[in-house]
Design a protein around this nucleic acid. Structure first.
Lengths: 142, 142
DNA sequence: CTAAAGCCTAGTAATGCAATAGGAAATAGA
DNA sequence: TCTATTTCCTATTGCATTACTAGGCTTTAG
């Protein structure tokens, strides 16, 4: 599985925050309830996003999370690479990996490289605002 | 990781067999040595390929494995889907999975569907013969 | 008959994923 | 200043999957 629960949840949460931008800071509790995700598990994920400065978290009463940039400035690719660690389709291309000793002669390496580029290019081309549903309650209002 | 060791090895072995087609049946021992893969582990992988009729295996002295079709009739996609079980990039799209209860309203589902199609289309477009190196010893021979 | 090969069923060790636990620190408002 | 609220931090646990191993059985050619 290229993208695990962590990455999927992260993306959904980012979309949720984009959709509720107008409400200011949103507490974790609220996001967890809306998205049906365990609060404790979400903590880990949000912590990762905050550490990378994709979100700003504030503690205390009235605290919560907000995006640090406008939705069109986030790509799905960067969100997933952050939370998943890597989007490499095979271990051979993973950053940590020193690279296989056979890479010079490997007949399949190009397939993996092309696939890797395909995946990353597509996901880097999708931005958060493209995933935000038109806000409800404003249809047909002039 | 989308493709694990099993799938990577399977692909390398298939290419190996395509390259050594002229030699007739190749025993597992030989492939394992050439590819630097444990014999016992390879057994599992080759068994999967034989069961799916992608390879023919024959026991006894003089036995070994051969492709059942010409290399241009194998796609990388089918080899990987067989050995990996699925190439779905997220659990939501996995065949076994009943589909998420939120799929109707999920803002991210389309991203996964597009990604899935991208991956499968690319891998189904690459055939085994495209990965076979021009046989050595025959360069510049007329 | 025998050596060479594939076939089959288990089993195991290690890894990574998903989720949980418990508390510390900060903040706003009473 | 006290309290409720909320994020932040470090571990730990249970579970599933992956990678690999073990041992024996069956088939085949010579």
């Amino acid at each position: 599985m290229l993208v695990s629960t962590k990455g999927r949840y992260a993306l959904r949460v980012m979309v949720d925050l984009a959709e509720h931008q107008a409400a200011g800071r949103i507490p974790l509790k609220e996001i967890a309830a809306r998205q049906g995700i365990s609060e404790k598990y979400l903590e880990n994920i949000l912590a990762t996003l905050v550490r990378a400065n994709m979100l700003s978290g504030m503690r205390g009463k009235g605290g919560g999370y907000v995006l640090t940039r406008p939705p069109e400035q986030y790509t799905v690719g960067e969100i997933l690479r952050l939370t998943e660690g890597s989007l490499a389709p095979v271990a051979c291309l993973d950053g940590d990996c020193k690279g296989c000793s056979r890479s010079d002669e490997c007949p399949t390496l190009d397939v993996w490289k092309n696939l890797d580029k395909l995946i990353n290019d597509y996901l880097d081309g999708v931005t958060l605002d493209q995933l935000v549903a038109p806000s409800e309650g404003y249809d047909y209002v002039i």
